[in-house]
Amino acid sequence: MHTFIIQVNGPAYGSQSSYHAYRFTQACLSAGHQVEKVFFYQDGVLNANMLHAPASDEFDLAKAWRELATTHQIPLINCVAAAMRRGVLAETDAKELNLSQWNSEAPFSNAGLGELVTGIETAQRLVSF
């Protein structure tokens, strides 16, 4: 068994990067490896927007990430600074700014970039998409 940290730099819709990362994460798990966390950075933070609403006959990647994380207990960590400047806010971020709305919730959590660094330090492999 090996330990992985997966880094996602592309949005859920409009690039293939997040889908690649999703399929790779699934393949890691089915091979018996451990995915310590999935870290979303750059435009990858847009995956945490819970308001993705594709047509009912289309694959909902943002939802698929949430389901995968819930099923396998994998933390989905969004870089909070990258997310906030791209309009992706969790409830706590919104409250600090006195905003009445937010668009990100568990199992995604907004945290510092340090989470990427500690993940790199502890995991045996970083794979970026």
Partner: peptide, 10 residues
Amino acid sequence: SYEDFVALTI
């Protein structure tokens, strides 16, 4: 496959 991809990263 994606499974092979995982193996290559190792």
